[in-house]
Amino acid sequence: MTREYPDTMAGPYEPPPRSFTDRSDREVVVREFGAGPVDDFEVLVGMYDGYDTEDRAQGIPPVGEEHVRDWLDTITGDDCFNVVAWHGDWPAGHATLVPDRHGAYELAIFVDGEYQGAGIGTELIKGLLGHGREHGIDHVWLTVEHWNDPAIMLYEKVGFERTGDGGFELEMAATLSES
């Protein structure tokens, strides 16, 4: 893997829990996976099973409850890091870090339809990066579709830099530790 990570550290961000009021005046709390008010896994299955096709990105979340369960099983495994944004008992969003084979972690973030555009993504990703940093993660990367400007702006705002241009998608990376 020849990816170059930024010299400048992203953040540092505080780990969860992070409480805030979103731009639609909703009280939201970002908590690590497993610390939610109800069964995290089951509510995420519900959230992703009802996901709008237009919010799918690069083939995820997968389609159909069984595939959603398999996928969530993988990305919430013992070697992964996950946070959930809670609005009461409902997941407004979810973000995950999954290890690659090179000691770094791939990041993805999802905000449920009616919660988009309210600043939840920013808090969610800061919470996840704080959670990762707390557990000694140094390097994080992601890919994003070229046309997805809102997502690219969010990633740049929290400290990701563009590292590669693979054609259909853009690759970005962030450093969580001090060099």
Partner: peptide, 17 residues
């Protein structure tokens, strides 16, 4: 139809693109 990343994203190879 492409390989998948660690967290399951589809990545098309350069030949397919």
């Amino acid at each position: 139809g492409g390989e998948t990343s660690p967290l399951g994203k589809v990545r098309l190879g350069s030949i397919a693109e």
